[in-house]
């Protein structure tokens, strides 16, 4: 066996060059390298194969690898662009870039729409909205009667479905978010701007200087 230095450890399946990822995302090269530190940690928490499995993703979010959560499942599925059941490094960086403070709001709005379009129909339907509200209630301590849930879903749907055709399309979603900007709060992670401070070791080893 040869030397097991950092260069070799980077040759994991799905590894992509930080310079390329930085050129395609809101991250600098240093930030991508710092994200690799985080990725290594997450992708080795249960199965040490350089890929984030759903159980590892759940473990990172909830400190419990068996906790099922509709929204965590949705995020995982959107991050897993190749739809092969795991998140590779490139997928991780490109997807997390949506949550970067410098990423255009329009990208965040589009991502949230895909997140809530549970059945990939190109629309958020009333049934999907109710399913998500019930999922949220199921994970929280909030108890609401079915009547109240129906009222909440109806009111929101009428407000968002401006064309009144029984489904929310991307155009209506953009208008709705413009009227309710707080909905996009969790689409920005301020932490991503400080990622190099959280994971400085890789930056010290970096062979590439940021162009910024």
């Amino acid at each position: 066996m040869g030397c097991f230095c950092s260069k070799h450890s980077r040759q994991t399946p799905g590894y992509e060059e930080p310079t390329i990822l930085a050129s395609e995302t809101s991250f600098t090269v240093s930030e991508v390298e710092a994200l690799y530190e985080l990725f290594k940690k997450l992708s080795s928490s249960i199965i040490d194969d350089g890929l984030i499995h759903k159980e590892e993703f759940q473990f990172a979010l909830f400190r419990n690898s068996n906790k099922r959560n509709l929204f965590a499942d949705r995020i995982f599925d959107l991050f897993d662009v190749k739809r092969n059941g795991v998140i590779e490094f490139g997928e991780f960086v490109r997807s997390l870039s949506v949550f970067h403070p410098n990423t255009p709001q329009s990208d965040k709005i589009a991502f949230a729409f895909r997140l809530y379009d549970l059945r990939y129909t190109g629309y958020i339907e009333r049934e999907e909205l109710k399913e998500m509200v019930l999922a949220l209630l199921n994970e929280s301590d909030l108890i609401l009667s079915d009547d109240v849930v129906e009222t909440i879903v109806d009111k929101t749907f009428i407000d968002a479905d401006s064309k009144g055709d029984g489904k929310i399309d991307m155009e209506e979603w953009k208008e709705f978010v413009a009227r309710n900007p707080s909905l996009m709060k969790n689409m920005t992670l301020p932490y991503l701007k400080d990622i190099t401070l959280a994971f400085p070791s890789f930056v010290v080893n970096s062979e590439v200087e940021d162009s910024e």
């Binding site: 990172a60 009111k155 709705f176 992670l189």
Partner: peptide
């Protein structure tokens, strides 16, 4: 009042959507 809640506002409070947990040591 719960009935006055915005459904998407409610959904956005899900722990599953709080990705900042990924960065906790």
């Amino acid at each position: 009042k719960p009935a006055a809640m915005n459904a998407f506002e409610l959904i956005s409070t899900s722990q599953g959507l709080n990705l900042s947990s990924l960065f906790e040591k």
